[in-house]
Simulated scan of single mutants.
Amino acid sequence: MATKVLTLVGSLRNGSTNQQLAEASSHNAPEGVEVAVFSGLENIPFYNEDTDVEGGVPGAAQALRDAAADADALMLVTPEYNGTMPAVLKNAIDWLSRPFGAGVVSGMPTVVVGTAFGQYGGVWAQDEARKALNIAGANVLENVKLAIPNSVVRFAELHPKDDAEVVEQVTSVLNSIKEIAEAN
């Protein structure tokens, strides 16, 4: 049985290098790993405890929770906006973390990767995402990291799925997720 990895992409932009990195992950998933890239983060309303009640959860938020419940692991792919993660990812984490202590991400093997225009590849955004996920109760694999700098230049003419170094790194990340998910 394959390890199912739900992938959330923090960039909503067409042609996003982070969307391309998610595609590279899906395209180059190692044997025994199935990567599903979630679409629709832009449709999820900001978390509001007043609507997070039986019969009141917005459909888009419930779809995210259902997709996560069907997964064995979670991978966030984030750009860096003003030194932190995009609001859509933080919002997704908020919806997935409730009810607090028993949210769908509680104990779920999770990694954060990404690419950014700057020289550090979005490490601040990744660190902020890991922090929020840890507080949400996810089993964040702190030693599994992938930050690709200079994305606009590096991927100007080459899709990440065709970049041998990226393929090797993505495969390593996914194998690490698989190993931890299978041990759970």
Rank of each mutant, 00 (worst) to 15 (best):
K4D: 03
L6P: 00
T7I: 05
L8H: 00
N14H: 15
N14W: 15
S16L: 14
T17N: 13
Q19R: 12
Q20K: 08
Q20V: 02
Q20F: 15
L21D: 03
E23C: 05
A24F: 07
A24V: 04
N28V: 05
A29E: 05
A29L: 14
V33K: 00
V35S: 02
V35M: 14
A36Q: 03
G40Y: 10
L41K: 05
N43M: 14
P45A: 13
P45T: 03
Y47T: 01
E49A: 07
E49G: 09
E54W: 02
E54Q: 11
P58Q: 08
P58E: 11
P58L: 09
R65N: 07
A67D: 04
A68R: 14
D70N: 11
D70F: 08
L74F: 10
L76F: 12
L76A: 06
L76W: 12
E80M: 01
T84M: 13
T84L: 06
A87P: 02
A87H: 12
A87S: 11
V88D: 06
K90T: 02
A92K: 06
A92F: 15
I93K: 02
I93C: 02
S97W: 12
R98P: 00
G101Y: 14
A102E: 06
G103L: 03
S106F: 15
M108E: 07
M108I: 01
M108R: 14
P109H: 11
T110R: 09
T110K: 09
V111T: 04
V111G: 00
V113Q: 00
G114D: 08
F117Y: 15
G118Q: 08
Q119P: 03
Q119M: 03
V123W: 15
V123K: 11
V123N: 05
W124E: 06
E128L: 04
R130H: 05
K131R: 15
K131H: 14
A136W: 08
G137A: 09
G137E: 01
N139D: 13
V140G: 05
L141D: 08
L141H: 13
L141I: 00
E142S: 13
N143V: 01
V144W: 14
I148V: 05
I148W: 15
S151L: 07
R154V: 10
F155Y: 15
L158V: 10
L158T: 05
H159A: 08
P160D: 09
P160F: 07
P160W: 13
P160M: 08
D162G: 11
D163V: 00
E165C: 03
V166R: 01
V166K: 03
S172A: 13
I177H: 06
I177N: 09
K178L: 03
E179Y: 07
E179A: 15
E179F: 03
I180R: 13
E182N: 10
A183D: 07
